[in-house]
Design a protein around this nucleic acid. Sequence first.
DNA 1: TATTGTTATACTCTATAACTATA
DNA 2: TATAGTTATAGAGTATAACAATA
Lengths: 136, 136
Amino acid sequence: MNRDDLAVLTFRLSRRLLAIEQPILDRHGVPMWSYAVLTALSEGPTRSQASLATAIGADKTRLIPVLDDLQRRGLISREPDPTDRRVRLLSLTESGQRIHGTIHTEIRAAENALLSDLPQADREAFVRSLIRLSPR
Amino acid sequence: MNRDDLAVLTFRLSRRLLAIEQPILDRHGVPMWSYAVLTALSEGPTRSQASLATAIGADKTRLIPVLDDLQRRGLISREPDPTDRRVRLLSLTESGQRIHGTIHTEIRAAENALLSDLPQADREAFVRSLIRLSPR
DNA sequence: TATTGTTATACTCTATAACTATA
DNA sequence: TATAGTTATAGAGTATAACAATA
């Protein structure tokens, strides 16, 4: 079969998904990296900003303004660890949990709409394979 | 099932594929955008640089240095259209065809190695779905 | 006047290195 | 002295706007 390279196809889909999500994020005033942080913290609190940075594949320096903004808006809690005051303990506030849940639900709905183009068997195989091919 | 967003998974795979291809491209001294141009032209000559740019999802201005380099290395032909001298006719030289073929073969081999992690049925469904979900 | 290609410039994103505070 | 976080700066990549040639 004469198809494009996998990298091209994947890159194209990646851009398409981003374009689908952007309006949702815009509507909630949450930039993509902020959403990535909310998602990471929704799985549990994090000790140290550096570990959060590597967890979401970002640089620790470019996380700072993101965390500043989330904190200013009351979406995360960010306090020095009493046992080692160099470290910041990060977690979602109630408000942060709520906004993450809302956005996440909307994004999933949009993604499912996209996937509904596929026959069910392919859809399942696609998601399963994607998970397998994209380890952290 | 509790999985990451599709956008995250796709982005992760995209980066992984890029990391796999980079050493191959480096070995041949061909940057990614140059390879994109070679690939586009391997499907046939192009009339006008602007149409080539949109075809590969690039900006026409950032194509210029790419084309300059490919031309200097004798991999593409780039001549004014005699019927409209504003337009440049672009095509691969023999040398350009050869290097594209070599790189393309190596990249496909690397991609197939990656896909071989998957059971055959999933592999086929994955590629089929990816093509369907990433229209130009 | 409109269009193709080119150049120059500005802007965004990201990474590097230096600095502060805690240990 | 070493580490977490922060700030300042520089670099790459990209897009915007002005320009030259041709129609």
